[in-house]
Design a protein around this nucleic acid. Sequence first.
RNA 1: CGGGGUGUAGCGCAGUUGGUAGCGCACGUGCUUUGGGAGCAUGGGGUCGGGGGUUCGAGUCCCUCCACCCCGACCA
Length: 572
Amino acid sequence: MRLSQLFIPTMREVPAEAEIPSHILMLKAALMRKLASGVYIYLPLGKRVLKKIEEIVREEMDRAGAQEVLMSAIIPAELLKESGRWDVFGPEMFKLKDRNDREFCLGPTHEEVFTDLIRNDVKSYRQLPLTIYQIQTKYRDERRPRFGVMRSREFIMKDAYSFDVDWDGLDVSFDKMYDAYCRIFDRCGLKYTVVEADTGAMGGKDSKEFMVTSNVGEAVIAYCDNCGYAANEEKAECTVQNTINEEMRSVEKIYTPNVKTIDELVSHLNVDAEKFVKTLIYKYKDKVVAVLIRGDREVNPVKLANLLNVTENDVELADEKTVKEVTSADVGFAGPIGLKGDVMLIADAEIPAMRNVIVGANETDYHLKNVNYGRDFKADVVSDVRKVVDGDKCPKCGSPLKLDRGIEVGHIFKLGTKYSDALGANYIDENGNEKPIIMGCYGIGLNRIAAAAIEQNHDDKGIIWPMSIAPYHVIVVPVNVSNEAQRDLAEKLYDELSKAGIEVLIDDRDLRAGVKFNDADLLGIPIRITVGKKAEDKIVELKLRREEKPIELKHDEVLNKVKELISENIRS
RNA sequence: CGGGGUGUAGCGCAGUUGGUAGCGCACGUGCUUUGGGAGCAUGGGGUCGGGGGUUCGAGUCCCUCCACCCCGACCA
């Protein structure tokens, strides 16, 4: 392709709306443009990158025995109402009505549609196992789209669903997908970590996320260098860090006028935050629960929701009125002793291991010190409900955990029977018994892969595409197109490379060398061939985008060298 | 959804006490130039986010709506 003809409106200045490198570079390098908040259109180069990623995903899905189908982006409301998710997703869905006032939504995910297909057309164990997938646009009306394609409202996803006769079968299907995912991300040139994840509103059992490590990632992951344990922040198990064996002292009431927050208490009493226990009042489904947690810790809302057997959306901090009713005091003085009404008391796992702590007195302007679990109060439930912190002991081996940020590019679940039960997707086993089909589901965000790849592969000049997903492999740059020798040699090379099936660009624009080099760097084409002063002697330069120094090559050596470089850098 | 901010040429921005809109880059044309974002000359491009109001006169003041961005909340 000729740059003089390619629709590639690169930008010299940084668009004000973009903050992170991938977003900036995708706009600058003319991969995409924004149409509306969280909605992007892809230009020729961006489209090629997506195609490359799509092809890798497709090859690996097919290799793993999955079969491609294509659902509709439009889903009738009744299907999602059948599973209950019409309300679970709620405002996250783009909803629409047809002329007869029938409700639909633009699919945020497709479990129900796939399950519906299977319940109609799969009846016997003889038809199982089966894994089918699609590559399709999904729609989620995110509250806050951001970071370009990283969190957009329209995005391309590969979603696969496995159907098995039993849990052992699911394990096999799941492991195949797991392996396929590793191959996909390896081939895309991404550095990633697989972490244990919470299943959340999706339901199901085992769940793993594929996280591309990046400091712009929105997810926090905890991992252990020693034993390999890794989990996302929501899931990461917390252990009791240290057990204090002080002698229990007697409870004292202390006057703490208008001292409400842990920070204020720390400076008022000159005692470390870890000697306090916070009492947080939450509401869920018209019930009230009090959560006790060490002063310097944070509650993990996912763990709390799971413990209460509700979704995260159902749990929220109680309003002031409720807090006053339950604690008989202003907000800021809640404690475990003397709560009124039907309040479940949950203590974080660390609480029983603490001694002589300070808690709210359930009386405005007072706290209690030397309070001890077991002697002074007992919780209805003791469970891990806090967020991990850097340095926590690994739940598997006890070494210190580290925290990092990641971009979630893939997520695989063992769903089990959640949707087959809800929609009645059953099969007849060899004994004639009707049983629910055991399902798994597996998602990959394709545009996110592109953005994540840029996050991990760029410098201050632009993108540095991994060979496997680069829009083109080679760019031929004649330094001066009005120099006949340079132009002719460049054209000849372009022609030879094209005929050999190489994906090659030629920058035949009548521009200064600096502009062309800067564009080539911005675009991130892996191999640049510069045809300059030595064109008369049939000598050109070959420079890798990733490397600093070029090498000189004779004209007739170029094709083989290029072929070699490409095949070295693409795994299949 | 709460808090903050911004809307002026394709991009980045300026616009004073209210007086009829400008700069850089980009774009067209001509000449010169040609190994890391050239120079000179010349030209085109604007419902100043929309609507309403105040005023002789509004990019500027007031009201209102909208869009977009950031922080938070939220997120299979």
